[in-house]
Amino acid sequence: MSGPRRDPDVVRPYVRTGGRSRPSRDVRLETLVIAVHDPLTQGLEPDARRVLDLCRGGVLAVAEIAAGLDLPPSVVRILVSGLIDTGHLAAPSRRVRADAPSADLLKEVLHGLRSIA
């Protein structure tokens, strides 16, 4: 063994979720969430607080949060569902979906994605 190895799961996932094994609501990887303004963070678990900190000031997808915190996506889905339940996070996607983006925009995104790949 060579030096300390970074182990993202020294705290096991089931401890991070407090034993919950599935989200309390339909939260997917692509679900977008945003922090509700001035939520009280007292009484939150450390990981929930990290999620909330990351989401402050804008919209993030669950997958991004998972990547950002180096946590298993299922853990983040469970944490996010809990934070939505407690009113710390909001999932504005439904509201946003109402004014669907134009075909031009989507085309441009698709084109952009292809050029990355």
Binding site: L32, G58, P101, L106
Partner: peptide, 20 residues
Amino acid sequence: EVRPGRPDIAAAWVDGSRRG
């Protein structure tokens, strides 16, 4: 950087990736 994007753009990206 993980930076919150504008909701409409993010939603467009999500929709696109989901449809794909």
